[in-house]
């Protein structure tokens, strides 16, 4: 899987949050996206997941499909999924249902009467055990702790069996034990050949986990390259200090 972004632009009144940005996300790699607050990282994810309409530019999937308009309910069929910087779960549902809800063939007429098949239940169990929430499966999502909510959201993304994962600060606020789970999930997805995008402020994590890094500043690409080299770059250091 490969996503090529060409001249992507997004303007809000007064601010150009993403400015003529071109970059490529490749399968089998964890790609870091870093940059000071307000540099456009989340906006980029919002554009790629159809949350915000694209003002200019093109997104090319697998060297084949060029899209200028991404409809949110289509991203599943493109193999793209994401998480949110401010966790967004289905609060009314149980932990288990938050996973089961994505494991659905969208044949609506059947879905009216059909219950989940054993395959779905097995998959949900697998994911919930991985994020250590199997024991909480029947509890409402709203009852979970911050870290557990973060993990559940990541688990929901993993259940989608996508090929491109956009993780917006998945480590933020996690204790080491939980961060370890997230880390192993990210590596596992990379080993499966998925394109994994990691937005992160902790440079040690970026150095330790990513294969390639893009640095954004005010919506433009400031630098790119292997993490050790890029993070030593003067421009990059200044952008962070200047913030």
């Amino acid at each position: 899987m490969k996503i090529e972004i060409r001249n992507l632009t997004k303007r809000f009144d007064g601010v150009t949050a993403v400015n003529n940005l071109s970059l490529t996300l490749e399968g089998g790699k964890i790609t870091g996206i870093v940059g000071p607050n307000g540099s456009g990282k989340t906006t980029l994810v919002n554009l790629l997941s159809g949350f915000l309409p694209i003002d200019g530019g093109t997104v090319i999937l697998d060297d084949a499909i060029a899209v200028k308009k991404i409809r949110p309910h289509k991203i599943k069929s493109y193999g793209i999924t994401r998480t949110f910087q401010d966790i967004r779960l289905f609060e009314q549902m149980s932990v288990m249902d938050n996973i089961l809800v994505v494991l659905t063939e969208r044949n609506l007429w059947c879905a009216l009467f059909e219950c989940h098949n054993p395959g779905h239940l097995q998959k949900a169990e697998e994911v919930l055990r991985m994020i250590d929430l199997w024991d909480k499966r029947d509890e409402p999502a709203s009852s979970l702790s911050y870290g557990q909510r973060k993990l559940l959201e990541i688990g929901r993304a993993v259940s989608m069996e996508a090929r491109v994962y956009l993780f917006d600060e998945p480590f933020a606020g996690l204790f080491p034990g939980m961060a370890g789970i997230v880390e192993s999930i990210l590596k596992q997805l990379r080993n499966q050949g998925c394109a994994v995008v990691l937005i992160e402020h902790d440079m040690d994590l970026i150095r330790g986990l990513t294969d390639y890094v893009f640095v954004l500043d005010s919506g433009v690409l400031l630098a790119e390259g292997r993490p050790h080299e890029v993070l030593r770059d003067r421009k990059v250091v200044e952008a962070y200090i200047g913030n």
């Binding site: 159809g50 309910h73 991203i75 967004r88 289905f90 009314q92 659905t104 969208r106």
Partner: peptide
């Protein structure tokens, strides 16, 4: 009990997220 019901609940909780998990809201 049904997948349709889960889709309805998902929409009622957060229709934007419902969309990105593939529900044709």
């Amino acid at each position: 009990r049904t997948k349709f019901g889960k889709a309805v609940k998902a929409i009622s909780d957060d229709d934007e997220v419902a969309r990105i998990i593939g529900i044709d809201t």
